[in-house]
Write a protein that binds this DNA or RNA. Structure first.
Lengths: 174, 174
DNA sequence: CCGGTTTCGATGACGCGTCATCCATTATGC
DNA sequence: GCATAATGGATGACGCGTCATCGAAACCGG
């Protein structure tokens, strides 16, 4: 019989810790944003690039690429945020298909209220807990995973997994 | 005007890569599950403990604690899965408030079809990309972050950030 | 036994995220 | 110039996840 799994116990342990870290981190940051500025994480992700850009406005398309979001996600998010007055949609004169997303005064206020707490929390729960060496390791690992998981390499996955879907009776243990 | 925080460029770079890694990883695993067994990540998280348990059934409460989910999340998820025939709800004789969640034959088939590809993808996109040293670093870092973000330490965060004028925020919010 | 409290779980509302679809505009090839 | 594709973006449907609320059953101190 084959192994219980081709993933070792130590690796499962690592994965579990990794998932937990993400969950806790996201939860803490989200709560801080909500308490400080009444906005969500996705709200802040949109607001920050708008705030940093000279004219406080970006094309939806650029926003999508900047954040790695799908276009439809940007559109939905902007719709919700526009309803709350954090951003505004404007037509694009040079490309009539396009639309500019611009920061409103309320949006600017929200960024300012959110930034301090967000940065502090990020430092407290992440950056301050890592040594410089660990940061380098993490950055390198992240890059490798991103490269491996990028659409280009998905075909490779299909090849690897193209065999029979033999039963995986790999789960009875814990 | 471009400075909104005390976090260095290198750290922002790290954070961005980290976020990207999580997104890509989740997306790839999700797609693999969908292609192999027609189920989602949350579906799989529910099915796996049910599969591993001797009687193939668990109390909703235990499922919640096992996964670290809220009870309402379990309830919603089970409702959706029951509608697709992956699990069944049954009344609990010994505690009339409770309910057993049981694995159906379809649910069992789904687990079997999903497990292999999920493990392979996890290895390809994560474990195989990390050296043993990197795994140790990552595990240690994860543990540190989890400890820092655990509910116990949340009060410490409030103290640290208590200098902010949070009163004005609440007034402007609603 | 009885009234308060806690636990179990379902439910509705709402924001998030993806997918499929659609339409208008712009780019491209003949 | 014109047909055809490609792009930018909006929209609806649907699953995911949280929060607040609810009712019912169990627990617990008198």
């Amino acid at each position: 019989m084959s192994e219980v799994s081709d993933i070792g116990d130590g690796d499962w342990e690592l994965w579990r810790g990794f998932v937990m870290m993400r969950r806790q981190l996201d939860r803490a940051l989200e709560q801080r944003l909500q308490a400080d500025a009444g906005i969500s994480g996705p709200d802040f992700e949109i607001l920050l690039p708008l705030f940093r850009t000279p004219e406080n406005q970006l094309r939806a398309r650029d926003l999508a690429e900047l954040l790695g979001w799908e276009k439809s996600r940007v559109s939905h998010q902007v719709t919700r945020m526009a309803a709350r007055g954090l951003v505004e949609r404007r037509e694009c004169p040079t490309d009539l298909r396009g639309s500019w997303i611009t920061l409103t005064a309320d949006g600017r206020r929200a960024v300012l209220k959110a930034s301090r707490g967000n940065a502090t929390e990020l430092r407290r729960l992440f950056f301050d807990l890592l040594t410089d060496e660990e940061k380098i390791v993490l950055a390198a690992a992240s890059q490798r995973v991103v490269d491996a998981a990028s659409p280009d390499s998905c075909r490779r996955a299909d090849e690897i997994l193209s065999g029979v879907d033999r039963d995986a009776d790999t789960l009875a243990a814990s």
